[in-house]
Amino acid sequence: MWIYNPNTVADTIKTALEVRGKQDTGWIMHHVLDSRELDFTPFGVIHLPEIHLFGIDISITKHVVFMWLALVILVVTFLYVARTYKKSLVPRGVTNLTEVLIVFVRDEIVKPTIGKGYEIFLPYLLTVFFFILTCNFLGLIPYGSTATSNIAVTATLATISFIVIQVGGMMKNGVFGYLKGLVPHGIPLWLLPIMIPVELLGLFTKPFALAVRLFANMTAGHIVILSLLGLIFILHTYFVAPVSVSFTLFIFFLEILVALIQAYIFTMLSSLFIGMAVHQEH
């Protein structure tokens, strides 16, 4: 950049800003970001109430509404599923679907990564899996919004995972034993001043990575779809529409895959970290 004349650079940026003023791409962000209203254009817009508590803005937002929707869907579904198990032990219909996922989470994720004593963590990990899965899929339906593309939501989920990981480790090994076990065995004493900060940092990078991974994956797909559709309007021609729509369709299928994979990965990594915290000897 410095090889150019600074004035040229300044001019370029100025032009870019002016052009952006005319060709606003804010509509992409409008679809991806959280907002205070449920946009059902052309049927209307529902404005959500603003709530303030102790000086903190705790207004209900679009993403909160979709989290509640996920909660209602999950509670209703599993209420039904649990009832079918009372009738007969043979699964049928929706029960089959949920059973596949439950057994997958139990046998493929939690059992191998945590091992002995996995039963305590199973409810948490199952809830995380189904909650993220439902939120991800809610973003794929028309007028839907992906709560998991909000960094606040993913960071909170990651923080809850972090708490579960630490508490799980401390429950198994004792508070002092757990903290002592964080530093690998057989490390020379003079390395400790380096190892302790590194391990402490490692504790926090794990949930940070969880949060950013989920957030970025769920946001990126939507931005790509909206950008592809935006090409039609940026290029001012209808001829690009078939290309845009077919690419969008492709990305949409990819998003279905990503919705499943991200729910799996978040659960898998949480489970893995719990397993590492519980069985520190490995």
């Binding site: 959280d34 937002t61 909160v64 606040a152």
Partner: peptide, 12 residues
């Protein structure tokens, strides 16, 4: 997209 809304944290 990187804005963190404390209300959303609470509701989450």
């Amino acid at each position: 997209p990187l804005d963190v809304n404390p209300g959303v944290i609470l509701w989450t």
